[in-house]
């Protein structure tokens, strides 16, 4: 399978600020989530792949096209939905989308046809003769998606596509993205700081931190590989309870919200924990089976945990 994106020691520097630092890797997922805190380099990476910024060192390839030397060819395969409001004032939606299609190289007649189709597809069919400035925020987001799709790209960059959307509009956007992904005709790269969006749409996740790759993993493989653990909240002598848990042969550590994460070995039962609690005069206030969520994976990456799961990822290599 041809990699969607290949990064080859890619660095981008603005003055003294290094926005991306020596990124390397090959990514070939159908839908890749780009995660990271603000300033991690998600948008810079997308902009560099689009040719907006020149790499200071290294290079990257988009569907086999080098962004240094074949940037035009690369862009002809890409559809881009920017994060901020982007439209041409005074134009109706259909005229705007048609213009964008023609700029991508579609002949006039085909561009007009596809513009109508793209607007119907995203759900703006009835509003396609309205001027863009009269659209609500949700409609503008959909119009941005339509212009990204109109020329039938092979790779779709979606930068914060659910920004500013109310829950029903967000649901609709996520549904659309999943539909587009499931057609199998286009790769999707979704940049977001909303883990839920990425979790719902993407199969793979690339986590950036301070301009570097913190982790790249296949979400499904990660979920499969994750052992179930118990999330336990106790009141009482936590230290002695933890010692007792370790003596039972369990792995344990701190979880979120002052809860403990405990992995029981196969020979142990939950009843053993209750017995231990009685022995140490500890109250168990909460006990639940859990699996690592994307949030846990993200937090691990953010706190500099060694990317042990990287080598185990089914797709891509770093």
């Amino acid at each position: 399978m041809q990699p969607v994106i290949e990064l080859d020691s890619l660095s981008v520097q603005f003055g003294s600020v290094r926005a991306l630092s020596q990124l390397s890797g090959s990514f070939s997922g159908r839908a890749i989530g780009l995660l990271g805190p603000n300033g991690a380099g998600k948008t810079t990476l997308i902009h560099t792949l689009l040719g907006f910024y020149k790499p200071s060192t290294g290079t990257a390839r988009v569907l086999g096209n080098d962004i240094r030397h074949q940037d035009r060819a690369a862009r002809s395969l890409i559809g881009y939905m920017p994060e901020r409001d982007s439209f041409i004032a005074g134009m109706t939606a259909v005229r705007f989308i048609c213009l964008m299609a023609e700029l991508s190289g579609l002949p006039k007649e085909h561009a007009l046809e596809r513009a109508h189709e793209a607007l119907y597809y995203v759900g703006l069919g009835e509003a396609r003769y309205r001027k863009l400035e009269s659209y609500s925020l949700g409609m503008k987001q959909l119009a941005k998606l339509a212009q990204a799709l109109v020329h039938g790209p092979r790779l779709l960059f979606l930068d914060e596509p659910t920004n500013g959307l109310d829950p029903p509009a967000r649901e609709r956007m996520i549904k659309l993205i999943r539909e587009i992904r499931d057609t199998g005709e286009v790769h999707v790269i979704l940049s977001s700081h909303l883990l839920r969006d990425v979790e719902e749409c993407c199969e793979e996740v690339l986590i950036l931190k301070d301009g570097q790759i913190a982790q790249y993993c296949n979400l499904e493989a990660e979920r499969r590989a994750n052992r179930k653990f118990l999330e336990v909240e106790i009141r009482g002598d936590e230290a002695s309870f933890l010692n007792g848990v370790r003596r039972l042969g369990c792995d344990c550590g701190p979880g979120s919200k002052r809860r403990l994460k405990i992995i029981l070995p196969p020979e142990r039962q939950i009843a053993d924990l209750y017995r231990l609690a009685v022995e140490h005069n500890v109250q168990i206030r909460h006990l639940d089976y859990k699996k690592d969520s994307l949030q846990d994976i993200f937090l691990k990456a953010m706190h500099g945990m060694p990317p042990a799961t990287l080598q185990g990822a089914d797709h891509g290599s770093l």
Partner: peptide, 29 residues
């Protein structure tokens, strides 16, 4: 991506030559 299909479809048709593509802007303006 026909209207009645409501499904994403890649564009496989002809592409205009790159040289004259800047004419799109004045034509609209």
């Amino acid at each position: 991506m026909a209207v009645y299909e409501r499904r994403y479809k890649r564009y496989e048709g002809e592409i205009t030559p790159q040289r004259g593509r800047f004419w799109v802007i004045p034509r609209y303006a």
